[in-house]
Design a protein around this nucleic acid. Sequence first.
DNA 1: GGGCAATCTTGTCAGTGACAAGTTCTGGCT
DNA 2: AGCCAGAACTTGTCACTGACAAGATTGCCC
Lengths: 209, 209
Amino acid sequence: MPRSNPPDDADRPDRPDTPDRPDRPYHHGDLRRAILRAALDVIAADGPSALSLRDLARRAGVSHAAPAHHFKDRTGLLTAIAAEGHALLATTLTEADDLRDAGVRYVRFAREHPAHFQVMFRPELLREDDLELTTARALSSERLRVAVSTARPEFDGADPRLAAIAAWSLSHGFATLLLSHNLDAVVGDRDPEDVFRTATELLFPSTGR
Amino acid sequence: MPRSNPPDDADRPDRPDTPDRPDRPYHHGDLRRAILRAALDVIAADGPSALSLRDLARRAGVSHAAPAHHFKDRTGLLTAIAAEGHALLATTLTEADDLRDAGVRYVRFAREHPAHFQVMFRPELLREDDLELTTARALSSERLRVAVSTARPEFDGADPRLAAIAAWSLSHGFATLLLSHNLDAVVGDRDPEDVFRTATELLFPSTGR
DNA sequence: GGGCAATCTTGTCAGTGACAAGTTCTGGCT
DNA sequence: AGCCAGAACTTGTCACTGACAAGATTGCCC
């Protein structure tokens, strides 16, 4: 496999008014974003354990200690990714019409942002007291609770927190198993989101539609 | 925290007929098991990424290269753990009465064998073509399929593979979120398995019982 | 235009996985 | 009994990694 990611020009923004010089400038210009992009590529391809700060620095064309200035350390980088993930998830959940749509969006989020998703729920990899992370996570779980509270009548009278757990477990389990390739055989060529929708039909026998 | 595990005598089996010698014998006696035990402790406490072969060797009182002789490398050790986990899971699923009981057992397995569980579904950590792993996994997923096929009447006529996905997703998601401490706030002091049972009631409205 | 803080570099240290080559023990065969 | 083949373990080494410290460069603000 060819290194998972061809050198992406977006990593080194060209500065139009600078005469062309083959040796890179002292300041990268947008190193933080470049590191994040590269990190997401690596994690999506090989998981968080394959992440190396020095490798990311190499990809961005900077020295091995440069990333630390933006993220402090490896945990800091993963924490930033997790926080970004929770923010993205909160946004997409906000747009959901109903609980079922929220579940589908949860699965879609995991597929479209696999690196974020693989990091968000691994406390041992994160700085749990990070402010950015805790606020982002509070927001996304708030959105989840809202989605459940506006749910269809099946859950009337039930403990809403239990209902949230049930819905979350179902979506999270499907997304997790999907990303870890444990459903490949069953899903086949079909659209995973369709499979998820159909599978949930078995549990929430479709009343309306 | 005091190193997660007090030096466990079971790691160094005493040989009764040997005169007491403070310096360890050249052969450990049961190094493979000792390494596995220590690895499970570390993973349960801090996740697979905290695993260090050299640390395990230190705990077992052997040289840094000794573990490699039993497990080839880090991936080999994790693969052995995953295979053992699938075997254990298959056993407990075999004893399940019905689908709901299988789900509860799945969650209980994750709680009682958190290290195994955290490794079993991470292909990027494993040697996927390992024979022991593939056969053990085939057995455990076979048991899951059986549990679903003998399920209660809700699923009559439904695609059994979809039903399996739905049930598996629900149990797997709950177990995953539970182990990653994402349900701590809601579960509180209650028995997690009770919470799971109650939550699933919302999705499979209890007919019998 | 001068200084200051942000950004990035070089240098270094201990820890790690993997491999190679040597040492010690065990068990089985004759 | 003896021996020897190979299993179990050791020592030694290499490249790589994360973290930290200290210095160089640069943009920016007053």
